[in-house]
Simulated assay, not measured.
Amino acid sequence: MERVPHGSEPEAAGIDFSANVNPETPPGIEAAFQGSFADARTYPDDTAPAYRRAAADYVDVDPGQVVPTPGGLAAIRLALSVTVSPGDSVLVPYPSFGEYAREVRLQGGTPEFVPHDELLDTDPSGHALAIVCNPNNPTGEAADPDRLREFVAESRAADTPVLVDEAFLGFTDQPTLAGTPGVIVARSLTKLFGLPGLRAGFAVSTGSLRDRLERARLTWNLGVPAMQVGTQAMRATEFIDRTRKRVRQERAQLVATLEDHYEIAPSDAPFLLLEVDGSVADLLAAARERGIVLRDARTFRGLDAHVRAAVRLPSENRRLEEVLLDV
């Protein structure tokens, strides 16, 4: 299987708008990371009780429903490993996160691609799994909560589990589906808390699905630094509220400034998808020359004239506006 292209250029000169990562981190996180060193010299507690409790409080479920994973993608792979067998078909949205199709194929399954805005109207019968990205990446819109729950009910009736990737839901005020029967929720801590290299996340499910996830996960799959830093981050409620407010205000400002020059997809996420009238390659190169790194969204299935830009800090966003209005 080929690797899937992603954003993020740590060594890039300029401001990296290609990865949807919070440019800020919760207070005290660096000290928590440094303080984890001594405990990291022994094997971690495989039950991760404090981490599970923090995650449970974070999404309002019982700690027993939480399955720790090293990042959201690990939760996605774990979910597919216990639901998809060779020859199975899986409903996969597009354009959306490219790893879904790759992970389905790695399990021997076949992705059945459905437009992301039509997936909730698709019959889930006969599929081993249905995948929903909420909010969808790279378009940015969150699913209607009532329609999403209706789809979950339809899927349960069809005996089709639903995997809901909530990697960016923490940036919004939208309700989580964590703890909903028939659903596996995948959560990532690294984006909202600005720590993509930490690799911390978790899955949430109930009943037999939860039991299968817990039995299948790797032993010691979450390191001590990820446990301790993640536990503290998930309790940083003031930081979360402040981040949501900033993202909401800055996203609205970016749209108001750029909408007369670009077609912008409606977004509830910390990023915007822009349709380019002209050469995407030329825009990417011109922006890079002026210190702005954008995500080439042509790598997403179904897109051929788009770039994606993260919503960052106010001063950085003003620079993005300046460059995009001038290239």
Rank of each mutant, 00 (worst) to 15 (best):
P175R: 04
T176S: 14
A178R: 05
A178E: 12
A178K: 02
T180S: 09
T180K: 08
P181T: 01
V183I: 00
I184N: 07
I184K: 08
I184A: 14
I184V: 13
V185D: 14
V185P: 13
V185A: 15
A186S: 04
A186H: 01
S188K: 13
S188W: 06
L189P: 03
T190K: 00
K191G: 06
L192Y: 07
L192E: 03
F193W: 06
F193V: 02
F193H: 02
L195I: 04
R199C: 08
R199S: 12
R199V: 07
R199E: 02
A200R: 11
F202V: 14
F202T: 13
F202G: 11
F202Q: 07
A203K: 11
V204K: 07
V204D: 06
V204E: 03
V204M: 00
S205V: 05
G207T: 09
S208N: 07
S208V: 08
L209D: 12
R210P: 06
R210C: 15
R210K: 05
D211S: 14
D211T: 11
R212V: 09
R212S: 13
R215V: 05
R215M: 06
A216K: 10
A216F: 06
A216S: 08
R217G: 04
R217S: 01
R217H: 05
L218E: 13
L218H: 02
L218M: 11
T219V: 14
T219I: 09
T219H: 10
W220C: 01
N221W: 15
N221A: 15
L222K: 07
L222P: 11
G223R: 04
P225Y: 01
A226G: 00
Q228K: 12
V229R: 07
G230N: 14
G230V: 15
T231I: 08
T231P: 10
A233K: 12
M234L: 05
R235N: 10
A236Y: 10
T237F: 08
E238Y: 14
F239R: 09
F239W: 11
F239V: 15
I240S: 03
I240P: 01
R242I: 15
R242W: 11
R244V: 04
R244F: 02
R244Q: 11
K245E: 13
K245P: 03
K245L: 13
R246D: 00
V247R: 03
V247Q: 09
R248F: 05
Q249Y: 14
Q249D: 12
Q249K: 12
Q249M: 11
E250T: 10
A252D: 11
A252I: 07
A252V: 10
Q253F: 05
L254H: 00
L254G: 00
L254R: 00
L254V: 02
A256K: 01
A256I: 03
A256V: 02
T257S: 15
T257V: 15
T257Y: 04
T257N: 14
L258H: 09
L258S: 08
E259A: 15
D260Q: 11
H261W: 08
H261C: 07
Y262M: 01
E263V: 12
A265D: 00
P266C: 03
P266N: 03
P266H: 02
D268K: 01
D268N: 07
D268A: 10
D268E: 02
A269I: 13
A269K: 02
F271V: 00
F271S: 09
F271P: 05
